[in-house]
Design a protein around this nucleic acid. Structure first.
Length: 797
DNA sequence: GCGGTGCCGGTACCT
DNA sequence: ACAGGTACCGGCACCGCG
C-alpha cells in the first residue's frame, strides 16, 4: 500500500468527526476503525469553511466580489471568493462563494454583506464546519472511507495509527459494519434529600460491561474521586469505539462531568486526551468515540409507554424478571449492608441490560447515521425534523440546490386528513383498505416540492394544479422531495432484494432490516417535515397541497365504494373500512388504482369490529383470533392498569360473542375486589407526562400536584418526565387527593375513585353500546363476592 | 350555596 | 424539537335558582 513519498491508502469506517483550531488553522479530525478493528485518526488541515451570498444576476455577484477583493482590510479572514451558479428553491441563481478561516467570522461577514444592494440572502454559514466538510467531500458517517495520507508523527496514544491527509478522500460503496468495541455503563449517586445533584451528590457506584464480555463495578468506599478516575481509566484501557448508556446524556454524563469538576479531576476519556463535552442536539460528545444514549432511540418507539430500562428490555423480550429499585429507595439500600449487595446487583444488571439493548439498536443507529449523514453520536439525539433536514441537505447538494438557512418565521395552519364518523356498533367481516405510503406517493406523483411550487396561477400547461387551491407544481424537472423519495424507494427495493439473498435471521439480514426501517422512517417523515416551521425547506403550500390531494384520494375511494354499494363503516386519512365482500372489494381496488394511479390494498380483515360514536377509537377481532384495540383507554398510557385490563377483557368478551351481561358480571367482580382492596397496588398507578416546567401550569391537575409534592422534597423533575400517581382518601378535589405512587400504599387508596373514575368509564365505553348502565356496574354486588375472577378469564391466544 | 353547563388546558392517541 | 384531527378528563367561571 505504501507509495512514493510515504503516501498510504487508508481504509476506515467513519465513527466520529471533530474539528479544532491548531495554530489558528482549522483541522478536521476523522475518527474511525480499520478493517482489522484498529482505531484510526485522519486529520485534514486543508479545509476552509464557506458561505454563499445569493444573487439573481451574475453581474450583481461580480460587483460584490470586486467589492470584497478591494476591501480586503474589512474581511481579513476571507481566503478566497468566486462566483458559482446554483438553484435556490428551484430558481436558477448566481452565488458568491467565499471561504473563510473562521466560521464565526463567516456569519458576521455574511450578515454584513447581506446588507449590500441586490443580495437576496446569505446562506450555508449556519452549517457547522464538520458538516460542511462531510458535504464537500461527499463523506458519510458509518460508512467505509478511502483516503490518501501520510503517517503522522503527532499520533495520539489512544489510536493505532494517525494520518495526515495529503491526497484525495472519498466514500466507498461498502457499508457493512465492522465489529465495534462497545462499552455500556450506568452510574448511581447518593443524595439523602431528593434528587442527586451533580455539584454536591457523590457518585457511589459505576457499573460497566464490554462487548468482549468484561464486567466491572466501581464502588466508592470513602474516596469518590477514586471511582471517577478508575472508570475513566477503564474507558482508556478498554478503548471503546462506542459507549452506550441509558439516559446517559441527561443523567450519567452530566454527573460524571459535574463530579469531576467538583472534585477537581480530569475525566480523561476521549481519544484525544480530553474530556466529554456538551454538543449539538443536547448530546455529550467524546472525541474519537461514539457516545450513544439508547433511551433517546427508545423514546421514538410507541411501546412500552413507561420507558424504564427494565420495562423496555422486558417488552423487547431480551430480559425477564428484572430487578427494579426506585430512585427514592437508593439511600435506604446503600445504608443497609445486606441491601447494598442488592444495589450492586441491580446496577450490574442495568449495565448488562444496556449492552443487550445496544445489540438490538446499534444496527439501526448506524444505518440511520449513514442514511442521514448525521454522525452516530448525534443520530439518536437529533429529533426527526433534524434527521430529515440532514438527509435533505445531502440530497440538495447532489441536485445543485443551495441550502437555505433555518430562520424564524410565522406559522400558517392548514387542513389535514379527512376523518369519517364511524357507524357505531358491532360489524362482521370488515376489510381495512389502505393507500400504501399515501403522502410520499402523492408527493412523487405530483412532483410536490419546495423547488417546483408555483404559488399563483399555475396556468402553465406543464404543471400539476391542486384542486381547490391556487397552487401548482411544475412537472419537470423533478423536485428535490420527489428525488429524495425516489431514492428512498429505490433503496428500499434494493434492501428487500438483498434480504432475499441472505439467510433469514443472519447478521446481514438484521442489518438490512434495520436499514429498511431507517429508510421508511425518513420517507414517512418527509410530509410532516414540509409543514414543520423549523425546516430549512419549510413551505406550507407543499404540506397543504399533499394533504389536499390526500383528501381527494380518500374521497374518490369513498365514492367508488358507494357506487359499488359496498357498506362503509369508517375511514381516516388514508384508510377505509368496508364490508369484506370479496368481489366488490377487488373491483374497488382496481377502480381506485385506475382513477388515482395509487395503490390501495387490503391491509387486514376483521372478523368483527366494534365502533362507538367516537372517531379514532375501535376494537377488532382479527381472523387469526387476536384482538386489536385502537385509541381506546386500554391502549392509553394515562389510565390505570386495572381500568385498561378490564376494558381489554370486556372488549375480548364482546368481540368473541359473549353476552354483554356476562361482561358486566366480570366488571362487577373486579369492582368488588377493588372495594376490598384486593388488587395489586401497581395496578392503580396512573402515569402522565410533564409537558412543561411546573411553574407554567395554569391549572391544578392531579399529576402536576403529585409532581409538586416530589419537588417539595427536592426531587428534580424535568420536562418529559412521567409522573406516577394514585388517588388517595385525602379530602377535596381530585388534584388534592393525588399522591406520588411511591408515597402511598394500598390502604391510602380512594377505592371509589378507581371504581367510578377508572374501571366504570373504561368498561362503559364498550358496554353502553349494549344497554348496560352505570348503576348496573356500581351497585353493591354481594352475590358475586365468592365467585372468582378467573372464571371469566379466557386463555390468551 | 349549589348543581348544571360550557369552555379551556392538558394529555395522548390515530393516520 | 415532523403534520393535523380527535377524544376525553378535570378545573373553573358562570349561570340560574325563591
Amino acid at each position: 500500500m505504501e507509495g512514493d513519498h510515504g503516501m498510504t491508502v487508508i481504509l476506515f469506517y467513519l465513527l466520529d468527526i471533530g474539528h479544532s483550531l491548531v495554530e489558528g488553522k482549522l483541522e478536521i479530525r476523522l475518527w474511525g476503525v480499520d478493517p482489522n478493528g484498529n482505531s484510526i485518526l485522519v486529520r485534514d488541515r486543508t479545509f476552509a469553511p464557506w458561505f454563499h451570498l445569493v444573487f439573481r444576476n451574475a453581474s450583481d455577484a461580480q460587483n460584490v466580489l470586486d467589492f470584497i477583493r478591494t476591501s480586503k482590510a474589512e474581511f481579513p479572514k476571507i481566503l478566497s471568493t468566486c462566483v458559482v451558479t446554483g438553484k435556490f428553491f428551484g430558481a436558477q441563481v448566481t452565488a458568491l462563494k467565499a471561504t473563510c478561516q473562521d466560521q464565526e467570522l463567516a456569519t458576521t461577514y455574511a450578515e454584513s454583506l447581506r446588507k449590500l444592494p441586490r443580495v437576496v440572502d446569505h446562506i450555508e454559514d449556519d452549517i457547522r464546519p464538520v458538516d460542511q466538510y462531510l458535504l464537500e467531500k461527499g463523506l458519510t458517517p458509518c460508512a467505509w472511507i478511502e483516503a490518501e495520507g501520510e503517517k503522522d508523527s503527532e499520533k495520539p496514544a489512544s489510536v493505532r495509527e494517525s494520518y495526515l491527509l495529503t491526497g484525495t478522500i472519498r466514500c466507498t460503496e461498502e457499508s457493512k459494519r465492522p465489529r465495534l468495541r462497545v462499552l455500556s455503563f450506568t452510574t448511581l449517586s447518593f443524595e439523602e434529600k431528593g434528587s442527586p445533584k451533580p455539584d454536591r451528590s457523590p457518585l457511589i457506584l459505576i457499573s460497566a460491561q464490554t462487548s468482549e464480555g468484561r464486567s466491572v463495578q466501581f464502588e466508592a468506599e470513602k474516596e469518590e474521586a477514586a471511582i471517577v478516575l478508575a472508570f475513566a481509566e477503564f474507558i482508556r484501557e478498554f478503548d471503546p469505539d462506542v459507549i452506550v448508556g441509558y439516559q446517559a446524556n441527561s443523567v450519567d454524563w452530566p454527573f460524571l462531568m459535574g463530579r469531576a469538576k467538583a472534585l477537581g479531576l480530569r475525566l480523561n476519556a476521549d481519544r484525544m486526551g480530553g474530556e466529554p463535552h456538551p454538543s449539538v442536539h443536547g448530546h455529550i460528545s467524546i472525541a474519537g468515540r461514539a457516545n450513544l444514549d439508547l433511551f433517546e432511540i427508545v423514546q421514538d418507539q410507541a411501546e412500552p409507554k413507561v420507558k424504564t430500562l427494565q420495562n423496555v428490555t422486558e417488552y423487547l423480550g431480551i430480559a425477564k424478571g428484572t430487578m427494579r429499585i426506585e430512585d427514592t429507595e437508593v439511600v435506604e439500600y446503600w445504608k443497609n449492608s445486606e441491601k447494598k449487595r442488592k444495589l450492586r446487583e441491580y446496577l450490574a444488571q442495568n449495565a448488562e441490560l444496556i449492552l443487550r439493548l445496544s445489540e438490538v439498536f446499534l444496527d439501526y443507529a448506524t444505518q440511520l447515521s449513514s442514511l442521514t449523514g448525521l454522525p452516530l453520536d448525534q443520530v439518536a439525539s437529533a429529533s426527526m425534523g433534524f434527521k430529515v433536514d440532514s438527509y435533505l441537505v445531502r440530497e440538495a447538494r447532489r441536485l445543485g440546490e443551495l441550502i437555505p438557512r433555518r430562520v424564524d418565521r410565522p406559522y400558517y395552519p392548514y387542513r389535514g386528513g379527512l376523518v369519517l364518523t364511524p357507524k357505531p356498533g358491532l360489524h362482521e367481516n370488515i376489510a381495512v383498505l389502505d393507500f400504501t405510503s399515501m403522502y410520499p406517493n402523492l408527493m412523487l406523483l405530483y412532483n410536490i416540492s419546495p423547488d417546483t411550487l408555483i404559488r399563483t396561477g399555475g396556468a402553465e400547461a406543464e404543471a400539476f394544479r391542486v384542486p381547490g387551491l391556487t397552487y401548482a407544481f411544475r412537472k419537470a424537472p423533478q423536485g428535490m422531495y420527489a428525488a429524495a423519495l425516489e431514492n428512498l424507494l429505490t433503496e428500499r427495493n434494493k434492501i428487500k432484494h438483498e434480504m432475499n439473498s441472505v439467510r433469514h435471521g443472519s447478521t446481514e439480514f438484521r442489518a438490512l432490516e434495520a436499514r429498511e426501517k431507517a429508510v421508511k422512517t425518513i420517507a414517512n417523515a418527509m410530509y410532516g417535515y414540509a409543514g414543520w416551521i423549523g425546516a430549512r425547506w419549510y413551505v406550507k403550500e407543499v404540506a397543504e397541497s399533499t394533504a389536499t390531494l390526500g383528501r381527494r384520494a380518500i374521497e374518490t375511494a369513498l365514492d367508488a365504494a358507494n357506487k359499488l354499494q359496498l357498506e362503509l363503516i369508517y375511514g381516516d386519512t388514508d384508510s377505509i373500512f368496508v364490508k369484506n365482500d370479496v368481489e366488490k372489494v377487488a373491483k374497488l381496488i382496481t377502480t381506485i388504482s385506475e382513477m388515482l394511479r395509487m395503490e390501495i390494498r387490503v391491509d387486514k380483515v376483521y372478523r368483527r369490529v366494534l365502533f362507538t360514536e367516537a372517531k379514532k377509537r375501535y376494537a377488532g377481532l382479527r381472523e387469526d383470533g387476536t384482538i386489536e384495540v385502537t385509541g381506546l383507554e386500554a391502549v392509553r398510557g394515562d389510565w390505570s392498569e386495572i381500568a385498561k385490563n378490564v376494558q381489554e377483557r370486556v372488549v375480548g368478551m364482546i368481540l368473541r360473542g359473549e353476552d354483554a351481561k356476562k361482561a358486566a358480571e366480570y366488571v362487577k367482580i373486579v369492582i368488588d375486589s377493588i372495594r376490598k382492596r384486593r388488587v395489586a397496588y401497581p395496578e392503580l398507578v396512573i402515569w402522565k407526562t410533564l409537558t412543561k416546567p411546573l411553574e407554567e401550569y395554569e391549572v391544578r391537575a392531579p399529576h402536576v400536584e403529585a409532581a409538586r409534592q416530589l419537588m417539595d422534597e427536592d426531587w428534580r423533575l424535568t420536562l418529559g418526565d412521567r409522573i406516577g400517581y394514585v388517588i388517595t382518601n385525602a379530602p377535596g378535589k381530585l388534584h388534592q387527593k393525588a399522591r406520588p405512587y411511591v408515597k402511598a400504599t394500598i390502604n391510602d387508596i380512594d377505592v371509589e375513585y378507581y371504581v367510578t373514575g377508572q374501571v366504570v368509564p373504561a368498561a362503559l365505553r364498550i358496554l353502553e353500546m349494549f344497554g348496560i348502565g352505570e348503576d348496573e356496574l356500581t351497585k353493591q354486588t354481594a352475590q358475586w363476592q365468592d365467585r372468582r375472577v378467573s372464571e371469566f378469564l379466557e386463555p390468551k391466544p
